[in-house]
């Protein structure tokens, strides 16, 4: 069992899930309530990682992180090193890759809030900001939890993007899935199986939580 890889994966997934709450909530809010006619383009863009082969996403991120792009240059001028093959690069890639897994459940639960509650909130003098914190978010707790859990789990399980932009540096970018791949390549089936089994059990547990939450939607907040 490679505890270093497991710890690294856990750290990565937690940071990504946390970042996706900050990034995903405003995007989901905008998708739920904007009346912009070209909104569907943004919705499609957010969901692209769902259907794209991870290698395609990884390839373009690698290009963007490289010193040939303005972003890569800018990052290098600030931090002194390149994003490719670094933990930070992995974090950014994972945020993009897991974005739909956070935004979709967030947006679905925002859209499910009775619009009359939002109208009545505004007639009671509440700004949109206030309404979001006092009405929309409390009523969307199951959806937000689902989004966080799914993006955490998805980050734990990603492989292609990590391989493309992270490489295989122990303690820096060698995640659990890369570790398993490594061991299979080295014909260490027994240790590969150990780690794989842990991931399998983890994935099952996480999805059980998600489905249980959505079945009894008020499992977290016992009301309505």
């Amino acid at each position: 069992m490679n505890w270093e890889a497991i710890a690294l994966t856990g750290r990565l997934a937690m940071i990504v899930a946390g970042a996706l709450v900050l990034v995903g909530l405003p995007i989901a809010y905008w998708i739920s309530f904007s009346r912009w006619r070209w909104k569907f383009l943004i919705e499609a863009l957010v969901s692209v990682p769902l259907v794209l082969p991870p290698t395609v996403l990884g390839f373009y991120l690698l290009v963007a992180f490289g010193s040939g792009s303005w972003f890569g240059k800018w990052w290098q001028s600030i931090t002194g090193h390149t994003l490719a093959f670094s933990f930070q690069g992995l974090v950014i890639a994972s945020i993009i890759y897991s974005l739909p897994f956070a935004v979709q459940p967030f947006a679905a639960s925002f859209a499910a809030v009775d619009p009359a509650l939002l109208s009545v909130s505004s007639t009671l003098g509440a700004s949109r900001w206030h309404t979001f914190w006092r009405v929309i978010l409390p009523l969307s707790v199951p959806g937000v939890v689902t989004g966080v859990v799914l993006s955490f789990a998805h980050t734990v399980g990603e492989f292609g993007v990590v391989l493309m932009i992270g490489g295989n540096i122990p303690g820096v970018t060698r995640t659990v899935s890369i570790d398993i791949y490594d061991r299979v390549q080295a014909i260490e089936y027994a240790s590969a199986n150990q780690t794989a089994l842990v991931l399998l059990i983890f994935a099952f547990a996480v999805l059980s939580i998600v489905y249980a939450l959505n079945r009894r939607i008020w499992a977290v907040y016992p009301f309505k």
Binding site: S119, V120, T123, G125, Y221, F223, K224
Partner: peptide
């Protein structure tokens, strides 16, 4: 004028009480 500063009380047909 935005609804939140009109100071008009509105009781909806569905009442729209905050369930939480």
């Amino acid at each position: 004028i935005r609804a939140e500063i009109r100071r008009i009380g509105y009781v909806f047909q569905s009442l729209a009480l905050f369930p939480h």
